[in-house]
């Protein structure tokens, strides 16, 4: 394997692996961008990252390949999934463009930039690859360690400080100081009675058995949906399904189907 790393051209096996996994990585990247739901995007990205980890290994970066899997796919992507779970599916997931001309400009810029990068790489006409045989002779991890703790020791120290800072920063950002004692259930009910508003428990969602789901607003006697019946979190996310017009819509569809059938029979009768 070390001999292969030094060559101008790789072994057939690596070439095969590159073309297959490279295709997978590009598809994963494209899916990351174009998947409607953030969860799917995250999963596609994880796939791409695993492919990249394999490429690292193929390029002689054994340590990085493992780290890529452990840190990126293992930790960072899981963090992403956590946040997706916290935030939930939002209206922002829609792929519909709201800024005029943004999509075209973005594609134009992306295309131009890609062409430029390709041109740059092609222009550089890189031919000789030294390979890592010599550098990895004493072991990849040992080689990296030697560099990190000698040449790059200050950068290493600083990144350590950066990690600490980031940790504290994340805590500060997400932590909410409670300025007052949490109110007990008794106090809450007393307040409700005092205000005279919603004295009984809030109405339950899902009016009919058919639609017995928490994301469906219960209907008031006049047929309009009441948002009060839906959980606040769902309300905030705008994830309320409106079924008030469902019955009418069903009826209309039924009528239409009936009509179509009648019309179909009519021309048949006419033709006969």
């Amino acid at each position: 394997m070390t001999a292969n790393l030094a060559a101008y051209s790789t072994s057939t096996g690596e070439a095969f692996q590159f073309w297959v996994l490279g295709t997978v990585a590009v598809i994963g990247a494209l899916c990351t961008v174009f998947m409607r739901k953030a969860v799917h995007s995250a999963l596609c990205l994880a796939g791409t990252m695993i492919v990249l980890a394999v490429f690292y290994l193929a390029n002689g970066a054994y340590f990085l390949g493992i780290v890529q899997i452990v840190v990126y796919t293992g930790a960072i992507m899981m963090l992403f999934l956590f946040v997706v779970m916290l935030v939930g599916v939002t209206a922002a997931d829609s792929l519909k463009e709201t800024i005029k001309g943004q999509r075209w400009l973005a594609l134009l810029c992306g295309l131009g930039f890609g062409i430029l990068l390709f041109a740059g790489i092609g222009h550089a006409s890189i031919q000789d690859f030294d390979g890592l045989a010599k550098a990895n002779a004493g072991g990849n991890v040992e080689g990296l360690a030697a560099l990190i703790f000698t040449k790059y020791v200050f950068a290493f120290e600083i990144t350590g400080a950066l990690l600490i800072t980031a940790t504290i920063g994340a805590m500060v950002l997400t932590h909410r100081e409670r300025t007052e004692r949490a109110r007990t259930q008794r106090e809450l009910s007393e307040q409700r009675v005092r205000e005279g508003k919603h004295v009984p428990p809030l109405p339950a969602p899902g009016v009919y058995a058919r639609h017995n789901a928490v994301d469906i607003a219960g209907l008031l006697p006049d047929g309009t949906p009441s948002e009060l019946t839906v959980s606040k979190t769902l309300r905030d996310r705008g994830q309320i399904r409106d079924v008030s017009a469902d019955a009418l819509r069903d009826l209309k569809a039924l009528e239409q189907r009936a009509e179509e059938r009648l019309e179909r029979t009519k021309p048949e009768e006419a033709s006969k």
């Binding site: 961008v33 594609l107 992306g110």
Partner: peptide
């Protein structure tokens, strides 16, 4: 490039 375009589109 795909990543950059994604930043701009999503």
């Amino acid at each position: 490039t795909i990543g950059a375009t994604g930043v701009l589109i999503r």
